[in-house]
């Protein structure tokens, strides 16, 4: 078995990995909080969030606070599974390549 095959291509980006890490421990996080924590620009974050959403790893909820849009993100069961698989593959590689 090739362990590298288990590493998820989608999580190769540090920003996408960061988004998933944050959403694993927080039920729902809005766009601005993600931006602040990951220290990225709007456009950059939006494109990464899109990729994650297209792969079915994120649920997006568009809401309003007053007149301002408030978009929140949550992890889907598929996203959780993929993230855990990726972590396991990382651990496996560290253990067995020594």
């Amino acid at each position: 078995m090739n362990p590298i095959g288990n590493l998820n291509k989608i999580f190769e980006s540090r920003i996408r990995l960061g988004v998933m890490s944050i959403l694993m421990v927080n039920e729902e996080v809005n766009f601005n909080d993600l931006k602040q924590m990951l220290e990225v620009t709007d456009g950059n974050l939006a494109s990464h969030l899109n990729t994650l959403e297209e792969n079915g790893y994120l649920k997006v909820h568009k809401g309003f606070i007053g007149r301002k849009t408030n978009t929140t993100y949550a992890i889907t069961p598929a996203g959780e599974k993929a993230f855990k698989g990726h972590l396991a593959a990382l651990e496996h590689m560290i253990k067995f390549t020594r």
């Binding site: 990995l17 944050i22 421990v25 909080d33 924590m37 972590l87 560290i94």
Partner: peptide
């Protein structure tokens, strides 16, 4: 490399911690 994998795991842990506590 191994070093990079370890770094990735450290990043994940840090993100989880910083975002929740």
């Amino acid at each position: 490399t191994d070093q990079q994998h370890l770094q990735t795991i450290t990043d994940i842990k840090r993100m989880m911690e910083r975002s929740s506590r």
